[in-house]
Design a protein around this nucleic acid. Structure first.
Lengths: 236, 236
DNA sequence: CCTATCCCGACCGTATACGATCCGCTCGAG
DNA sequence: CTCGAGCGGATCGTATACGGTCGGGATAGG
């Protein structure tokens, strides 16, 4: 920032947006854990602004489902309990599956190479298993595959769901380490499928099934008593 | 409202929420058409409150995609152009298809009867075709079918997409009246499928295909030149 | 007559102020 | 000792105030 501000209009994000990003980062980074109380005044003071922009930011986060708000009580980071986790994963399976299928025909050879490379790094990370790194790479792998989806609305929904799962997504592989090995194999199969020009329905089924399987692994590990049918939209 | 206000805490919605609902109704009702300029001060004055709650309401509407916001310029009702319409319909096909499939096993005989009844009214309305009524009944018909979906998150996404399409959804059947006849036949087939206990995959495919077909009809009517493959997620 | 510049009004963004509500703690009665 | 009423601090909800930014119309020059 040698010259202070550059294109003043584009560079100067409004304070509401500053607050929004600041809070979102803390939530995504796990610094604000679920249930954490978001006090307007404190945040405002921390960010050196008044409460008004902070309120707006929190309202937006509320609309996105990241925080809950109670009248005259305030906001707290949304508690994603097991059932909500399951619901979001189910939705993500759907959305990501479709996005991946729609993107399949638009992937370049370079994209596929990058996907394979990321999966290679995933395999390597299996030895010295680090949930956070694994999750991050996993996200990037899938992002490469569905990013080319020509439907921005769908992409927005997919992203929103990823954000919503937030830090929680780490835990899937922390809790069920065995799932990670199976996961990377499915990744390879998925890329093969896409590369071979398989019918989009097959690609969608594979991508959806992949995530549903992760969910199922989590559920059967956390709630061994529940009927396996709970996995839900594995139907298609 | 003989007694003015009842349980003050539950009944007294905060002014932000008042503003939110007030604006949303106007948008849904078509009073505020796409592109309409939402001036904070005017709305605040109209609702007899200050601009602060109105700003919050508009922020929330922005997060939901109903209005767009530009720095130092203000908010206006989101322009849903053709491409966005297509994208939302595609997303809705996905989400509603899955929600309908997941709900299928939970539908009571009464639910199915209500669905058939609504479709009967749809058939009747075909004679004296009234787009708005038809669309409304159409929504209620589908709502009956997917309301029993055990995944609230999915339902929320479906609802959000319906709201997003808003008034625009009227136009589908206004523009392509022929589609309405085909639509009600598909409705019957869909209910039959559910009632017969067909595999969920079949239900999902049928429900998704139904909406994709509506989209395709719209597209081929509006843009006869485009490749029909544009219909998108008809794949599964 | 057409174009570029300047100025002004409308509106947005944020700060500050103040009343309202909730939650936890103290204190007294049983 | 237990429990309910009352009080006070913390925090929210909204109003008002003021400086900043944008867009359009008047004005001067070509």
């Amino acid at each position: 920032m040698a010259h202070g501000q550059m294109s003043e209009t584009a560079r100067t994000r409004s304070k509401s947006q500053q607050a929004y990003h600041w809070i979102q980062e803390r939530i995504a980074g796990g610094e604000f854990t679920p249930g954490y109380r978001l006090v307007l005044g404190s945040i405002a003071h921390e960010l050196d602004m008044s409460v008004v922009p902070v309120r707006e930011a929190i309202r937006r986060l509320e609309a996105e489902g990241l925080v809950t708000f109670e009248q005259h009580v305030g906001a707290r980071v949304a508690m994603i309990d097991d059932s909500q986790y399951r619901q979001s994963m189910e939705a993500l399976a759907l959305l990501e599956g479709a996005a991946t299928a729609l993107a399949a025909r638009h992937l370049t050879a370079d994209d596929l190479r990058r996907a394979r490379d990321l999966n290679r790094r995933l395999v390597e990370s299996l030895d010295d298993f680090e949930p956070h790194l694994f999750t991050s790479l996993n996200h990037r792998f899938h992002a490469v595959l569905f990013a080319a989806c020509p439907n921005p609305r769908l992409l927005a929904l997919v992203d929103a769901e990823w954000v919503r799962l937030g830090h929680l997504r780490d835990s899937t592989f922390s809790f069920v380490p065995g799932r990670a090995h199976e996961s990377v194999r499915e990744h390879d199969a998925l890329v093969d499928l896409i590369e071979s020009g398989a019918p989009l329905a097959d690609v969608e089924r594979a991508a959806r099934g992949h995530r549903s399987a992760t969910l199922a692994a989590y559920l059967s590990h956390e709630h061994p008593d529940e009927a396996p049918a709970a996995a839900g939209v594995t139907t298609v």
